[in-house]
């Protein structure tokens, strides 16, 4: 260990930082490590506990959940809530299918429309480009909650209310600002040499997009797809407003009706189990693809 006769220079600091030693020396480092670990564990517990609790509780019979407990003893765990939800009577799989169809449709359509627009904005010049971009971005300032009433009347007039197709169009539209923004940035970051080389080789615009640029824009598309899927899977107000017959309900609306007892008595076990079922795709998708989601948000926040 060197005897310090003057403050450590920048190089020493960098070496120490790289080695995980704080610039100030070694003592505080160990203490900070423990603080980090403890707060990390405690906080993650706080953040994740409600979801884990819900999962465990979904295996309790509804009567146990609603019973004033002398203890939450979890001794009578069963799949009863799940078997009760599936199949005749509750048909949760029907609503899962509705939600899935809408979410998938939204994700794919958003990806296509936003990619095309992103390509147009990011790689072409045309008159009025700023205006068109502005119009699409202005959607951000007009929350759908505030135009819900005229939107309902308008969609009703073209028979798109109580329709999963109509819901998809609605979701796609309000996903557009974010998605077009992401895709435009994606295209803007592609060096023009790649395209110039492809043009020299005689590629048409479509070949360009589909073959040449595809691997480069895939991360942006992944972010868009993920974001659109998740936001439509969890959306509530729009689905509640536009879907008026039970056969069309998505999961959030069906769960809501389970909660308020539209179909008779309220079974809290069904409600919790149904919610767990609804949460699983979100969590699975997120965990497997989180790279795209988080990076999309982080990049967007800095460039905004």
């Amino acid at each position: 260990m060197t005897v310090a006769t003057r403050p450590p220079g920048p190089d020493t600091l960098r070496q120490r930082a790289a080695a995980g030693v704080s610039p100030a020396g070694r003592g505080p480092r160990r203490g900070r490590g423990i603080a980090y670990a403890t707060s990390g564990v405690l906080l993650s517990l706080v953040f994740v506990l409600p979801l884990v609790w819900a999962l465990i509780q979904s295996f309790e019979p509804g009567t146990d959940i609603a019973a004033t407990p002398s203890a939450k003893d979890f001794t009578r765990l069963t799949f009863g809530n799940y078997t009760g939800l599936l199949g005749s009577g509750n048909d949760i799989e029907h609503y899962m299918l509705n939600s899935f169809a809408v979410a998938l449709g939204t994700a794919l359509l958003t990806a296509v429309v936003a990619t095309l627009a992103g390509y147009g904005f990011g790689r072409f010049r045309f008159r009025g480009k700023g205006i068109v971009f502005g119009v699409i971005l202005v959607t951000v300032m007009i929350p759908f909650q505030a135009i819900l009433t005229p939107l309902f009347i308008e969609l009703n007039d073209v028979h798109l209310t109580n329709s999963l197709y109509g819901l998809v169009l609605f979701y796609v539209t309000f996903n557009l600002p974010f998605s077009v923004f992401i895709m435009r940035n994606t295209f803007l970051q592609i060096p023009s040499e790649i395209e110039e080389a492809a043009f020299v080789d005689g590629a048409s615009h479509w070949t360009m997009l589909i073959r040449v640029l595809r691997p480069l824009i895939l991360p942006g598309i992944a972010t868009t797809v993920l974001y659109a899927f998740l936001s439509s899977w969890t959306e509530f107000l729009g689905a509640l407003t536009f879907l008026t017959s039970q056969s069309k309900y998505t999961l959030p609306v069906e769960l809501y009706n389970l909660e308020v007892g539209t179909y008779g008595g309220v079974n809290l076990g069904y409600l919790i189990a149904g919610t767990v079922i609804a949460m699983v795709p979100c969590i699975v998708l997120y965990v497997s693809l989180q790279r795209y989601y988080v990076q999309g948000l982080m990049a967007g926040s800095v460039k905004s």
């Binding site: 627009a117 147009g120 971009f133």
Partner: peptide, 8 residues
């Protein structure tokens, strides 16, 4: 370019 942005 413009046509690409028309759907949106």
């Amino acid at each position: 370019g413009f046509m690409l942005t028309v759907p949106s």
